[in-house]
Amino acid sequence: MTVKRSSWALPYLIFLILFVALPLVMIAVYAFRNPQTGAFTLENFAKFFSTPHDLNTFLYSIQVAFINTLLCLLIAYPAAWILSKSSFNRSKITVMLFILPMWINMLIRTLATVALFDFLKMPLGEGALYFGMVYNFLPFMIYPIYNSLEKLDNSYVEAAQDLGATPWKVFWKVTVPLSLPGVWSGVLMVFMPTISTFAIAELLTLNKVKLFGTTIQENINNGFWNYGSALALIMLLIIGLTTLISDEDSARDSEKGGLI
């Protein structure tokens, strides 16, 4: 009986191959194809490196992603630490309040940020872009860090204290190293999506700033499918590299699905 039941996964396997694996293969195929002749070519990639505008957008996106990740980390770590310290029941509700925005459409949150800037009569622009990015991604940094701090075995901290470490030393030598998996998955959940966002930057800067995701979207929309696929492949490569560097399992733990 057991043998037979394992075949129940077959429909889903076929579905996954058709709608997950095949589409990704198609991106790779299109990226290496000449738009007119359909022959194998590297010119889509060459075009990227010889178009300063697109290359600069790419580098700028990485810069924005770096700064955003750093800002989120600096703001989120203390918050997660305080949350993990406070009394159990009340902090559960507070934690919920911090995570709730994760579930609201990013587009809506971005428009809400635009509304806030309008309300305060502040101009949209690069400042709004960074504020909006941090605003959008902060929950994704707080949650995994909070999780790893919560699970942290307090006896390590107590042992360090008993052995005479100062609170400062305990924090840097015990708490921080033990929370690194959470930090890593937070970084992953902020850095990668920041690179791939589109629409957000335009709305927050009145079209003055464009990120790499928008470049890809524009090319696809304007019918440059091969070039767009090549750009998408470059983005996938960056994302793959980031994932490889960090611990894969910690990333999966903190996926949206395992949240509640």
Binding site: P23, M192, I195, S196, G228, A232, M235, L236, I239
Partner: peptide
């Protein structure tokens, strides 16, 4: 990322 899922299915 969403954008990759979207584009890959579009293609």
């Amino acid at each position: 990322p969403d954008i990759i899922t979207g584009i890959s299915l579009f293609i």
